[in-house]
Structure formats: structure tokens, C-alpha cells
């Protein structure tokens, strides 16, 4: 690396950086700031207030914080994130990976076909993932899951009607679980053998070894994955919207769908922006922690 020295260097650096920074600035940073600004207005999607929005101060926020639907949506999102991202994709995936990694005489890389299969749920576009699951959980007797439980004598279940939130949570676990497991297996197999053997010589039980040696060693990887999957899951829209459009009623209206509905179904851009700002605040909070984890790499 070389220190920037003189106007020629400075000009070169600026010219190289400008296009990317303009792109990120205009379409990522500016909308975030604009969201903050609009959240103080009564801007609507159409009609008079679309042209001439006026300032309404904190009205949108006081309304939001008094809106039972918003709370319900936020709580739903947190539950969705907890069960699909934290429990399903991180805890459960790590547990499976732990059971599987370092099996004597065996490693995942030896069976590449598995590695390919495990990547599929995440590699397909979210719309296709939703479409295939729509077929799986189809409420008629011929739906695949209903046929499976039919063998056990259970009646057909209207999954997307009666268990909508549970179903979309499982779909999201399915999407991330196997890929996370592959990542964790790679990480676990990267733990130096001699360290593990030394702890065994010292008489550590498997549980002590996991808690005192393995997890502390893998902490950065586990935390980074946990942060990323949590952040991504908070921002999910398409997977759930495709399956349920937030319904039935608003049973699966997670925060992303709530924002979309406010802005584009009820045409309240200002109010939708306010909800977006709150989501953004959560994500930037988590994001700051994620950036701190990555800080050593710059």
C-alpha cells in the first residue's frame, strides 16, 4: 500500500472511488436519510399530499407507537427471527455440524454430492423457494405434507391458513439450515487437532471441551454468521409475501410486509417511512456490532 501524496494521487483515488460511492450514496444512504425526513411528513403515494407533503412532527411515530398492528408485526418479526435465524439456522445447525464434524475417517468434503445438495435451498431464488413450498404445504388432501400425515391418519391441514406463521418459519429454517451446517462443519474441522488433543489429555469431558475450547475458538465465525443471518432475516420480504401476502388477516405480516402494505396498499409513504426508520434503527444497531466484529480485517 502506498501513501497518497500530492494532487495527482488524490485525484486518482477520488476518481476511482467516486462511481461506487455515488451509487451507494444515492441508492442506499440517501433513501435511509430520506426515510428519516419523510417520516416527519404526511406524504401520501397519490393525491394532494403526494405533491405537497407537510411537516407533522412526531405524529407518525406517536401513531406508530400506539398502533397495535405495528406492535403485533414487530413482535411477529422478532419471533420469526428468533426461531428461524437464531434457533434454526444457528443453534440447530451448529448442533448438527458438531455431531458430524471430526467423525473419525470421515469428512464432508469426501462426499461432494452432499455439499451440492445442502447449498440448493439457499441458492434458489426466494420466489422459487416459496413456490415449491406452496406446493408442499398445499391445503388439499393431495398436498405432499398432507399426504405424509395422512399415512399416519391425520386429516388434511390448511397449513397456510391455520399454521401460517409456523409454516413460513419452517420454510425459512429450511432455506438456511443446511448451508449453515456446511459452514459450521468447515469451521469445526478447522479447529487445530493438537489443541483438542491437549484438552483431552488434561481430562476435559466432551462438554467441557466444546464449551471451553471449541466454542471460544470459533466465536468470531459463529458471531459473524449469527449477526448476518439475524440482519438478513429482519429484512425478509419476498419469501413470506409470495407465500401468504401477509395473511390470513395479518397473521404473517412481518415488519417488511407491514412497511410495504402501509406505503403501497394504504398509500401512506410518510407512515411507511416511519416504520422503515424503526427497522433501520434495529438493523444499524445490529450492523454496528457486526462491523465491530469485522474491524480487524480492514
Amino acid at each position: 500500500m502506498r501513501r497518497v501524496d500530492g494532487w495527482r494521487d488524490r485525484l486518482t483515488v477520488m476518481a476511482f472511488l467516486a462511481p461506487a460511492l455515488i451509487l451507494i450514496g444515492v441508492f442506499l444512504v440517501w433513501p435511509a436519510l430520506w426515510a428519516l425526513y419523510q417520516s416527519f411528513t404526511n406524504r401520501a403515494l397519490t393525491g394532494l399530499t403526494a405533491m405537497n407533503p407537510s411537516f407533522v412532527g412526531l405524529d407518525n411515530y406517536t401513531r406508530l407507537l400506539a398502533d397495535a398492528d405495528f406492535y403485533a408485526s414487530l413482535l411477529r418479526t422478532v419471533t420469526f427471527v428468533f426461531f428461524s435465524a437464531i434457533v434454526g439456522q444457528t443453534l440447530f445447525a451448529f448442533l448438527i455440524a458438531y455431531l458430524m464434524a471430526n467423525r473419525p475417517g470421515w469428512r464432508l468434503r469426501a462426499v461432494p454430492v452432499f455439499a451440492v445438495i445442502f447449498v440448493l435451498p439457499l441458492a434458489v431464488p426466494e420466489t422459487v423457494a416459496a413456490l415449491t413450498w406452496a406446493s408442499m404445504v398445499n391445503g388439499t388432501e393431495s398436498g405432499l405434507i398432507n399426504r405424509m400425515i395422512g399415512v399416519l391418519g391425520a386429516g388434511p391441514i390448511q397449513w397456510l391458513q391455520d399454521y401460517a406463521m409456523e409454516t413460513v418459519t419452517i420454510v425459512n429454517i429450511w432455506r438456511g439450515l443446511s448451508f449453515a451446517m456446511v459452514l459450521f462443519i468447515a469451521a469445526l474441522e478447522g479447529v487445530p487437532r493438537d489443541v483438542l488433543e491437549a484438552s483431552m489429555v488434561d481430562g476435559a469431558s466432551a462438554w467441557q471441551q466444546l464449551r471451553r475450547v471449541t466454542i471460544p475458538l470459533l466465536r468470531p465465525q459463529i458471531l459473524t454468521f449469527l449477526m448476518l443471518t439475524t440482519i438478513t432475516t429482519f429484512g425478509i420480504f419476498g419469501l413470506v409475501y409470495f407465500l401468504t401476502r401477509g395473511g390470513p388477516g395479518n397473521a404473517t405480516e412481518i415488519i417488511g410486509i407491514y412497511i410495504y402494505n402501509q406505503a403501497f396498499q394504504f398509500f401512506e409513504i410518510g407512515y411507511g417511512s416511519a416504520a422503515g426508520v424503526l427497522l433501520l434503527a434495529i438493523l444499524l444497531g445490529l450492523g454496528t456490532y457486526y462491523v465491530r466484529l469485522m474491524r480487524d480485517q480492514v
Binding site: A32, Y37, I231, T232, G235, F237, I255, I259, Y260, S273
Partner: peptide
């Protein structure tokens, strides 16, 4: 900025 999903900024993004 990687953590900003279009979900959160979709309303202003539409206006812009």
C-alpha cells in the same frame, strides 16, 4: 451500508 435492506427504505426509494 450492507445491512440496509431495501425492505426498510422501499418507501423513500420509490419516491426517489
Amino acid at each position: 451500508t450492507r445491512v440496509i435492506p431495501p425492505t426498510a427504505t422501499i418507501a423513500p426509494l420509490y419516491v426517489i
